[in-house]
Amino acid sequence: MIKLYRNKQGKKLYPVCSWENNQHKLYNAHDRIMNTICEAQEAGLEPPYEEQERIEKAMDAFERYVIQGIVYATYEESCLIKDYVAAYDARHY
């Protein structure tokens, strides 16, 4: 029987990915956006702070519910996490 996990608000949590195999991918995305922000500031452009908030939201969701090495998240958060994981995979494979 499959166990159904829920967060404190009662929303369903879905299995997203392996924490161990994918954790570095979100940190890479954070490093990339921080570099972009620094470059934008140096060039006198508007830094993409919204993207920084987006990746930090994904990182928080990624760390919130890890059960037996698997990341669980709400549907919306799982889509956000998968976007960053897929972007990393596209750049590195």
Rank of each mutant, 00 (worst) to 15 (best):
residue 4 L to N: 15
residue 5 Y to Q: 15
residue 6 R to A: 03
residue 6 R to W: 04
residue 7 N to W: 13
residue 7 N to G: 08
residue 8 K to Y: 09
residue 8 K to V: 08
residue 8 K to L: 11
residue 8 K to M: 07
residue 13 L to I: 05
residue 14 Y to W: 12
residue 15 P to W: 09
residue 16 V to R: 09
residue 18 S to H: 00
residue 18 S to I: 13
residue 19 W to G: 04
residue 23 Q to G: 00
residue 24 H to G: 14
residue 25 K to G: 02
residue 26 L to H: 07
residue 26 L to R: 10
residue 28 N to H: 12
residue 30 H to I: 15
residue 30 H to D: 14
residue 30 H to M: 12
residue 32 R to P: 00
residue 33 I to W: 03
residue 33 I to P: 03
residue 34 M to I: 14
residue 34 M to V: 02
residue 34 M to A: 07
residue 36 T to V: 12
residue 36 T to H: 09
residue 37 I to T: 09
residue 37 I to P: 01
residue 39 E to P: 01
residue 40 A to V: 08
residue 40 A to N: 08
residue 40 A to Q: 15
residue 40 A to G: 04
residue 41 Q to M: 14
residue 41 Q to A: 11
residue 41 Q to R: 15
residue 41 Q to S: 10
residue 42 E to H: 05
residue 43 A to R: 03
residue 44 G to N: 09
residue 46 E to V: 13
residue 46 E to H: 04
residue 47 P to E: 09
residue 47 P to W: 03
residue 48 P to D: 11
residue 49 Y to A: 02
residue 49 Y to V: 10
residue 52 Q to D: 02
residue 52 Q to W: 03
residue 53 E to G: 10
residue 53 E to N: 05
residue 55 I to R: 01
residue 56 E to N: 10
residue 56 E to S: 06
residue 58 A to V: 09
residue 58 A to N: 14
residue 58 A to G: 10
residue 58 A to F: 07
residue 61 A to I: 07
residue 63 E to C: 10
residue 64 R to D: 13
residue 64 R to E: 13
residue 67 I to V: 14
residue 67 I to K: 04
residue 69 G to H: 05
residue 70 I to K: 08
residue 71 V to Q: 00
residue 72 Y to C: 01
residue 73 A to Y: 12
residue 74 T to W: 06
residue 74 T to D: 00
residue 74 T to M: 10
residue 75 Y to Q: 05
residue 76 E to N: 00
residue 76 E to V: 10
residue 78 S to M: 04
residue 81 I to V: 06
residue 82 K to E: 13
residue 82 K to G: 02
residue 84 Y to E: 09
residue 84 Y to R: 00
residue 85 V to P: 00
residue 86 A to Q: 11
residue 88 Y to N: 06
residue 88 Y to F: 15
residue 88 Y to G: 00
residue 89 D to G: 07
residue 89 D to E: 15
residue 89 D to L: 09
residue 90 A to I: 02
residue 91 R to G: 01
residue 92 H to N: 08
residue 92 H to E: 11
residue 93 Y to P: 10
